[in-house]
Simulated assay, not measured.
Amino acid sequence: MNNRSRQDHALTGTGLGAAALLDQLATAVLVLDGSLRIRYLNSATEMLFGASVRRLAGTSLTSLVLHGESLAERLLEALTSEAPYTERELNLRLGSLNETTPVVVDCMVTPIRLINGARALLLELHQQDRHLRISREENLLTQQQASRAVVRGLAHEIKNPLGGLRGAAQLLDAEVHDPDLRDYTRVIMAEADRLQQLVDTLLGSNRPLRIGEVNIHEVMERVRTLVAAEGHPGITVRSDYDPSLPCLTGDMDQIIQAMLNIVRNAIEAVLPQSQRNQPAAIVLSTRAQRQFTIGHRRHRLVIRVDVIDNGPGIPPELVEQIFYPMVTGRAEGTGLGLSIAQDLIGRHGGTIECHTRPGETRFSVFLPLQQGES
């Protein structure tokens, strides 16, 4: 009986094998052999490194961590001395499999002996920036809910006098016979109608979700078709999909609208580059993430959709506010696209995050596979 089988046998009374039990943890757990190659990893490790067990198993840890020579020295010393140690707030840059993503972890290293007597290391990685992200996300959701309530209250107050204004202009238009004067009344009615549409947009959709099976790749290809029809020469839109992703449950039309708003925002960001004949590119990426927390709820599996552009980035003073209504960095923008997208994704139990720097802005949409899953 191998090591995994012995653990599974010991847990038979719980109805869970050791692997299934460890996969429920939010902590990344790895076992490294004497060459620091990964011999075991749980689902949280897949999420941390952004790669599947198939790609990670048997890989040297030092090949996954940029400039990991000093980490390797400490691990080999622990392996030789069989002395456990803990390192707090270890800054890692995960390379090759996760596009050099910086993470901050508390690392606990425990030397162990495998059933065949070989030396190995048990690593537990607690991702500290993940906890900071969850806390920041909870604060952001609270602020957005308060902002949305204020905006919707204001929109309701605007609708009543706006309807009266439009009605009075319509009555005046019927009484005026001078064509020049009727031009003015029609301008008033047209502007009142435009403001009515803006107010309706601020109020958002009150339609109940039409829940059905949604293939996220059908959604993204529909979005690609729509933006291609709008005509943006010089902008390259490339896809990087994980074909193994299952379908999720949700309202396909609302998810399409949310993703369309995000992709259009990316197009606006790179449009000046394309007009100057500079490289302008957008990447649409899909991946699965396990044991992911959204707000106060942890989900076993979520679908992550990234919309990545190579534009100039978002000004630092706007990053924390871009999902608020009427906040925009463009003079001609309404500041509603991202706010509406966050609202629509939020109705599906998901969330949108943004990470930006000059040359790369990434909007990440997280959607639970099932409504109400935890």
Rank of each mutant, 00 (worst) to 15 (best):
V219L: 10
I211G: 14
Q170W: 10
I188M: 05
T185V: 09
D251R: 09
A229W: 04
V219S: 08
V219M: 09
P179I: 01
Q170D: 04
R182D: 05
L226N: 06
P208E: 05
P179S: 05
N206V: 07
A169S: 03
N206M: 09
D193W: 05
D253T: 13
M189N: 09
L162V: 02
R194H: 09
T249S: 12
C247Y: 08
S239K: 02
I188Y: 06
L245N: 08
D183K: 11
P233A: 15
A174I: 04
M252A: 11
H232P: 06
D242W: 00
R166H: 09
Q254R: 04
A169R: 03
A228R: 08
C247I: 14
Y241D: 00
I216L: 14
A168P: 12
G204H: 12
S239Q: 03
Q170A: 13
L162W: 01
P179R: 04
P246I: 15
P243I: 14
V187W: 02
D193V: 07
L162M: 10
V227L: 05
A192G: 15
Q196I: 10
L209A: 15
P179H: 06
K159Y: 13
E157H: 04
L248H: 01
V214W: 12
V227N: 09
G212N: 05
D253N: 11
H232M: 13
A190N: 11
Q197I: 01
D251F: 14
D253Y: 13
Q254E: 12
L162N: 09
S244W: 02
T225K: 07
I188L: 08
E218D: 08
V227Q: 06
K159P: 01
D251I: 15
P208H: 06
A258M: 03
A174P: 00
N160I: 13
L162K: 07
L165G: 03
Q196P: 00
T185Y: 10
T201A: 07
V214E: 00
S205M: 05
H177S: 01
R224W: 10
P233G: 14
S244Y: 04
V187A: 14
E191Q: 12
D200T: 00
P161G: 04
Q170P: 00
R194M: 11
I158L: 10
E221I: 07
L203M: 15
D178R: 01
M189H: 10
L248Q: 07
T225D: 12
L165I: 07
R238I: 06
D251M: 13
L171N: 09
L248E: 06
A190W: 13
Y184C: 07
T185A: 05
E175A: 14
